[in-house]
């Protein structure tokens, strides 16, 4: 029969790294027995002594956390403000945009008013939960790997040189997390569409032999680019070039696949009934437009940022409500 002490010790051990278990098991039992014995010597019954001792030791999960010496939080105080800012932005900007676009799709497909409203509610929940989850997951990984922290507080003493320059070349932790989130979302969407979103995959499964893995690799490179950008502290012409190359590596094959009708799964297209309009040509047109415009916009935006950084033009500093001009090290405007 398992005793109360057994149950307590097992509960602690459950959350302790395996290589420490045997030793902690033995030591904790002895400590408990010692305390119980002292209480029994003091005149209590054994059962009462055990209960009091365990109450005093307190929540076994907390004790286990003490032994394992792990942080008792998912996102610590250093990253929390950035996590909150990004999540708020996504909830107010990206979520409504995505839900509206999907609602328009539904309406084009000829869904009734009720169906569209139902779709909006469903999408709000699904996309909202996904955004929150992935943002949190990315930040939790940053917290545990210390990538963000290493940047915020390097492995040497802080010096005034470490102050963010607030030049147009400055990349905030929020922007950095955003640049990691995008590849994660694309890869997740690419993999999940094969299994979940609809009865048959949305995208042509034949492309798993080359193109879909290729896009996953490009997305991983996007993530690497994000880390590099963050570490090198800013938008330079090298960043413009890298961003443009990555953008084209993504957009050109995708547009080509779309234009040669190898992008969507023919089975999925066959299941669509949009009345008089042809789903394939519409979807192809819409996606090509979005990809082309998105890529051009992204390339130009980064190029403009880099150019502003080079010229040292004033730039709003996120979260301060102020504008800063690039300063030389001595504090004089360049």
């Amino acid at each position: 029969m398992t005793t109360l002490i057994d149950r307590y010790v097992y509960t602690v051990l459950r959350r302790v790294p395996e290589q420490q278990r045997a030793d902690i098991d033995r030591e904790l039992r002895t400590s408990i027995e010692d305390a119980v014995e002292a209480r029994v010597d003091g005149g209590s019954t054994r059962d009462a002594a055990i209960e009091q001792t365990l109450v005093e030791l307190g929540d076994p999960d907390r004790l286990a956390d003490g032994y394992a010496d792990r942080p008792l939080y998912l996102i610590g105080p250093e990253l929390y403000p950035h996590w909150r800012r990004l999540l708020t932005m996504l909830a107010w900007v990206v979520l409504p945009t995505a839900v509206t676009i999907l609602a328009i799709f539904d309406a084009v497909e000829g869904a009734g008013f009720g169906e569209v409203i139902g779709g909006v509610i469903g999408n709000l929940l699904t996309i909202g939960v996904n955004l929150a989850f992935w943002v949190t997951a990315v930040f939790a990984v940053l917290e545990r790997t210390g990538v963000g922290r290493a940047e915020l507080r390097r492995n040497r003493a802080w010096s005034p040189d470490d102050l963010p320059s607030y030049e147009p070349g400055f990349l905030t932790v929020g922007q950095f997390a955003g640049s990691l989130l995008w590849p994660v979302l694309v890869i997740a969407a690419l993999v999940l569409q094969q299994f979940t979103f609809s009865e048959v995959p949305v995208l042509d499964p034949d492309n798993w032999t080359f193109w879909w893995p290729y896009f996953i690799v490009v997305m991983i490179l996007e993530g690497v680019y994000g880390v590099w950008l963050f570490r090198s502290h800013g938008w330079t012409h090298a960043a413009t070039a890298a961003n443009a190359v990555l953008g084209l590596l993504f957009a050109v094959p995708m547009i080509w696949l779309l234009a040669t009708e190898r992008f969507f799964n023919p089975e999925f297209i066959a299941m669509q009934d949009w009345g008089s309009v042809d789903p394939l040509s519409w979807l192809t047109g819409i996606v090509i437009t979005i990809v082309a415009l998105g890529t051009i916009w992204d390339i130009i935006e980064v190029a403009i940022r880099a150019e502003r950084a080079r010229r040292g033009l004033p730039t709003p500093v996120p979260g301060t409500g102020r504008e800063f001009t690039a300063l030389t090290r001595s504090g004089k405007p360049m």
């Binding site: 420490q20 902690i24 030591e27 904790l28 002895t30 400590s31 010692d34 305390a35 002292a38 005093e56 030791l57 307190g58 907390r62 004790l63 003490g66 032994y67 010496d69």
Partner: peptide, 27 residues
């Protein structure tokens, strides 16, 4: 050992709890 130290410390006037002390020793 753990319990003896706990006793010594509380007798000496240190307010320490077992669930802080035991993990601390290992650290």
């Amino acid at each position: 050992y753990g319990y003896s130290l706990l006793e010594t410390l509380s007798a000496a006037g240190f307010e320490v709890e077992a669930n802080t002390l035991y993990p601390l020793l290992r650290r």
